[in-house]
Nucleic acid binder design. Sequence first.
DNA 1: ATGAAAGCGCTAACAA
DNA 2: TTGTTAGCGCTTTCAT
Lengths: 335, 335
Amino acid sequence: MFKPITIKDIAQALDLSPSTVSRALSDSYEINEETKKRVIEYAEQHSYRRNPMASSLRHGRSYSIGVIVCEVANSFFSQAIDGIESVAYGKGYHVIISQSHDAYEREVVNIQHLANRAVDGLLISMSAETKDFSHIITLHEQGLPIVFFDRIIDVFDTHTVTSDNKKGAQKATQSLIDRGFKKIAHLANAPHLSITAERLEGFESALRANNIPLNESLIRYCHHGGRIQREVEEAVRYFLDLDERPDAIFVASDRLSMGCLSAYNKLAPKAEHPAIAGFSNSDVLDLLQPGFTCIRQPAIEMGRVAMEMLIQLIESRYPVYEFENTVLETELISR
Amino acid sequence: MFKPITIKDIAQALDLSPSTVSRALSDSYEINEETKKRVIEYAEQHSYRRNPMASSLRHGRSYSIGVIVCEVANSFFSQAIDGIESVAYGKGYHVIISQSHDAYEREVVNIQHLANRAVDGLLISMSAETKDFSHIITLHEQGLPIVFFDRIIDVFDTHTVTSDNKKGAQKATQSLIDRGFKKIAHLANAPHLSITAERLEGFESALRANNIPLNESLIRYCHHGGRIQREVEEAVRYFLDLDERPDAIFVASDRLSMGCLSAYNKLAPKAEHPAIAGFSNSDVLDLLQPGFTCIRQPAIEMGRVAMEMLIQLIESRYPVYEFENTVLETELISR
DNA sequence: ATGAAAGCGCTAACAA
DNA sequence: TTGTTAGCGCTTTCAT
C-alpha cells in the first residue's frame, strides 16, 4: 500500500552498493566526500527514512525506553516526563509512556507490554496498589536495565532517584506548627509506598522536635493513593467525626490534597475546614482560597537524572555493580 | 550482555525446525496439538518473548502509533489519551505520546521523530502556534495514515473527530447571559486553531440570539494558547483597563481559564473579578470559589473514536477515499 | 504435520 | 574507498 524507499533503492539508482550508501548515510569516515554528498542529496530528495525496525534488529537495540507512572495528568509526573524526554531525545532515545492509574493489574499488564515491545530499559515509579513485585523482578533477572524514581522499591540493587521526602514532610509539618496549629493530622498515601514511609517519618520527626505528642489516630492511609475518591472522603469523614478534630492536615500528595479539599467542600461548611499543607507540584494551587502551603519536588530534575542513569545502564559495556541512590532537595512554598 | 532466547533456541532444544516453533507460537492450525503444547510450555518456562523488531521488520508494521498533543498535563488531553490507549491496547497497538507544548518547532521535531520511529499512523491535535503544515502534508503524501482530533486542520482529506465547539460555546455564553451578564468578553485561543474559530462562532451566535451587540474590543486572542502566562496577563490587563470592563468572560480553554484566574488574582482585588465560564475537563474546578461553569468535552470518547478511525486507515487493504468527520456533543456543567 | 530456504532492511567484518 | 557477504529473529511459501 505504501512502500518507503530503502537503501537498496538508493544504491541501485546511484549505481553503488548498499553498504556504501549505508556508510554515507551514517556519516562514516571511510567514504569519499563526493559520494557521500551524492547519496545524501538523493536521499533527501526522495525523503528516504531509515527503517528503525531493521536498524534496531541489526543493533539489538530499540533505542526506546519505557516509563511507567501512575498518571500523566499529575503535575509532578508530567514534569518528570518533561525531564525524561529532554535527556532521552538528546541521546536519540524514544520514550514510551504508560499509566498504571495506581492499579496493580494495570501496572503488571503495562510493564509486560513495554517489555514485549523491546524497550532497552524501564523507568518505573511504583503504583500505589502494588505489593507483589515479581513482574519487575523477573524482568530484572532477565537483564533488563531498570531505574526507579520517586516511588521506589528495594527488592534488588539498581539506580534510584527520589526527593528528600523526610525533610520535605518535616518542613511542611513545621510550617503548620509555626502557624500555631497543634492538632495536626496526616493524610497518607498507600502504606507500602516508599514515599509514604519517608513522609510519615518527616511528619513524626517535626512533631517530636516541637514536643507535640504523636496521635496515631490522626493518621489515615489511602490505599489506592486517592484513585478512588470514596476512600479520601471516608478519611475526611473520619476526621470530622473525631471528638477532637484536627485543626490542620499534612497531606502526602497532590492528588490526595485535591481529593481532600473536595471532600471537605462536600462534607463540611467552609468555616470548619482545617488548614492544609502538603506535597504538590501543581501550579493551580495558588488559585485556591485559602492558598495552601506546599512542598514542591524538583520533578524535571528527577526525570533528567533518572533518564541519565538509565542510559548509563543501557550503554554500559560491562555489567554495572555500583549503584547510585540520588536524593534531591525539595522546596517549601508558603501561601 | 543480555541475550534473550529466540525461536531458534527453542527449535534446537526441542529438536524441531524454527518454522514449526513459529507456527506453534502463533497458534497456527497446521500443527500437531502435542508439538504445540511442548513448544508453548518450553517457551513459557524459559520466558521466551517474541522479538518485536524482527517481527515488525518481517510484517512491515510496527504496531505502534504516535500521538501528538500540546501537553499531557491537561485534563482534556490526558482523558483523550486514556481513550486512545484503551482502544489501542485492545487491538495490540502501542501508543507513543509526544508533547508539542504548543510550540511550532517542537511539533515539527516530534512529528519527525515519531515518523522516523516507524509508527503505523499518527493521531494529531495541532499545536497553537502552528501555521505552516508542510511537515504534516509531506508525511500524508508519503502515505502515512493520519487522523486529527480536537484541533484539526483542513489541508487534506482524512478522518477527524471534534466536539461540537460552536454549540458548546453557545451554551457557555448563554449560561452567562442567563445569569444576567451583559458585557461579556471572550478570551480566545490562537486565531488559526480550528477550535478557536468554532468557539468564537458559538460565542457570537449566543450574543446575537439575545440581541446583545457584538463588541469586537471584548475579544482577545492568546497566540501561544496560554503557554506564556504573560500573554494572558496582558489580555486581562487590557480588560481591566477598559472604560467599560466586562462583567463576565467566556474563556476558550482550560489552560486559559487557569491563566486568566491567576492573572486576575494577581492584578485586581477579588471584588473586581468578572464571572467566568469556559471549556474545561478539569475536575479541580469545583474546588474554586466561586465555582465556574464549564463546557466539558467527551474526551475519552474522542480518543476512542480517533484511535478506531486510525486503525481502520492502517488496516485497510485498499486506499481509503471516504472519510468521516465525527462531531461529539459537549456537556454544560453549571457551578 | 514438519522442514528448508528465502527475505524483510540494515550494517559490519572482510576482501578487494 | 568501495563491494561482497552474511546475519540480526521472525515468518511464510514451497516442498516433503
